[in-house]
């Protein structure tokens, strides 16, 4: 298992390099001369060719692409993602200062969504075509159809404005977390619930489940111990991607709930063509996705004996 994990970790290096190359090329190949763009914001008059040339030399924009890329990768590996054109602050610091706020709603939202989806998905699959199954499927359909900003406003109107139980927006005590977490969670629960249900239904039709039932095992044991574990492989894959999406910023929820996270910052940077932030964010997002995928791969090994067997074979059983 350790050897497998290490091998997977090493395999991530070229992936990460690919992401960084993409991010760097994205900003380098974007229309417009970065020197002119940056100077244009600093100066009131259009920069002269001499000013542009001097600036290019100063920040190394004249160097060959590979040299510039090498410098970028070396910096990124040290956590230096450049400087924001908008704020003049280091991109890493800008992202790092907002990341805890995003994480603070992403993690609980994911936990709520995953737990709820699992619970409802399993009940719905086990009691297929029952009232509860129909109700949960309709709820999931609604959950998938309602845009998250509509859901957010509905929750605010009901719980904050009409019932007065919760604050409308902003950060503060635990009560401030409820609505943004719920909005994020409910929007995701539907997807995960439907997937849990369909995966479990598929697994419940497998021969080994029938065998387990024929052996007289309790239905709860059959479902929870054997079937669900296998059904989770697909769910975990999607859940991993959703989690990575959560922690790299949720623009709508952050905007509606005045939550100072990473999502709104990045969107504003995109609007302002702050290529340094965009580039840094692509590397940051790529890194998160790569790490979450690694975690998902390792979970596969725990969940699916076939994957475990393959991993042991490929690493000689180490």
């Amino acid at each position: 298992m350790t050897a497998y994990a290490l091998r997977r970790l090493l395999a991530l290096v070229p992936t990460w390099l690919g992401i960084s190359l993409f991010a760097f090329a994205l900003s380098t190949l974007s229309p417009g001369d970065p020197a002119e763009l940056i100077l244009g914001r600093q100066l009131d008059d259009p920069p002269t060719p001499q000013q542009i040339e001097a600036f290019r030399e100063e920040v190394g924009l004249d160097d060959p692409f590979i040299v510039q890329y090498g410098r970028f990768v070396a910096g990124a590996a040290r956590g230096d993602l450049g400087t924001s054109f908008r704020s003049g602050e280091p991109v890493f610091a800008e992202l790092a200062s907002r990341f805890p706020a995003t994480l603070a709603i992403a993690v609980p939202a994911f936990v709520v969504a995953f737990a709820l989806a699992l619970l409802v998905g399993v009940i719905s699959a086990v009691r297929r075509n029952s009232l509860i199954d129909h109700a949960s499927r309709i709820a999931a359909l609604l959950g998938d159809s309602v845009p998250s900003f509509v859901l957010a406003y509905m929750l605010i109107i009901v719980f904050a404005v009409n019932l007065g139980m919760l604050p409308v927006a902003g950060r503060g005590g635990p009560e401030h977390f409820v609505l943004p977490v719920l909005t994020l969670a409910l929007a995701t629960t539907a997807t995960l619930m439907r997937l849990t249900r369909s995966s479990l239904l598929e697994v419940l039709g497998e021969d080994y489940v029938r065998t387990a039932r024929a052996m007289g095992l309790k239905e709860r044991t059959v479902v929870l111990r054997f079937a669900l574990k296998n059904a989770l492989v697909a769910v975990v894959t999607v859940a991993g991607l959703l989690f990575a999406g959560f922690v790299t910023g949720t623009v709508i929820v952050e905007t509606v709930f005045a939550w100072p996270g990473i999502g709104r910052f990045v969107v504003d940077s995109i609007f302002d063509r702050d290529y340094a932030v965009i580039r840094g964010f692509v590397v940051f997002t790529g890194t998160v996705f790569v790490l979450v995928n690694l975690a998902v791969d390792l979970l596969y090994v725990r969940l699916d004996p076939r994957v475990r067997l393959m991993s042991e074979r490929s690493t000689g059983g180490r």
Binding site: Y153, I156, I157, A160, V161, V168, A169, G170, T255, V256, F257, A258, R264
Partner: peptide, 11 residues
Amino acid sequence: RFFPDDTTRTL
């Protein structure tokens, strides 16, 4: 207090 969203601010 800063509310980027017009509707939330009004609510």
